[in-house]
Amino acid sequence: MKDNSNIEVVIIGHTDSTGPEEYNQVLSEKRAQSVVNYLTDNGVKKDRLEYVGKGETEPAYPNDTKENRSKNRRVNFKVER
Rank of each mutant, 00 (worst) to 15 (best):
N6F: 10
S28E: 04
I11E: 00
G53N: 00
S28V: 00
A60I: 08
N6D: 12
S28Y: 02
E22I: 10
K78L: 13
V36F: 02
D64P: 03
N63R: 05
K30A: 09
R74A: 05
G55F: 04
V36R: 02
S28G: 04
G53F: 00
A60Y: 04
V44Y: 01
D3N: 11
L27V: 15
I12S: 02
R31M: 08
T57H: 08
T40H: 01
E22Q: 15
T15W: 09
R73M: 07
T65M: 01
N6Q: 12
R31T: 09
V26M: 11
E29S: 10
R74M: 04
I11T: 00
K54Q: 10
N68L: 01
D64V: 07
S17D: 15
E67T: 09
N24F: 06
N37I: 07
G53M: 02
K54V: 07
I12V: 15
S17Q: 11
S5F: 05
D47M: 05
D16T: 07
V36K: 12
V35A: 09
E22M: 08
V44D: 00
N42F: 04
Y61A: 08
V35M: 11
K45T: 13
G13P: 04
N24H: 01
K71N: 09
L39G: 03
V35I: 13
L49N: 03
V10R: 14
E8F: 11
Q33E: 15
R48Q: 12
N42W: 01
E50Q: 14
T18I: 15
R31H: 11
K66N: 10
Y23F: 13
K30V: 06
N63K: 04
N42D: 04
A60E: 10
E56D: 14
P20K: 14
E56P: 06
R74V: 02
T65C: 05
Y23R: 14
N63W: 01
V26W: 08
R48F: 06
G13F: 01
G19A: 07
L39K: 02
D64T: 10
I7M: 09
V35R: 00
T40K: 00
G53L: 02
D16Y: 07
I7D: 06
I11C: 01
D3G: 13
V75K: 00
A60G: 14
N76C: 07
S70K: 15
P20F: 11
N76R: 12
R48L: 09
T57V: 06
K54S: 09
N37P: 05
N24E: 04
H14D: 06
P62V: 07
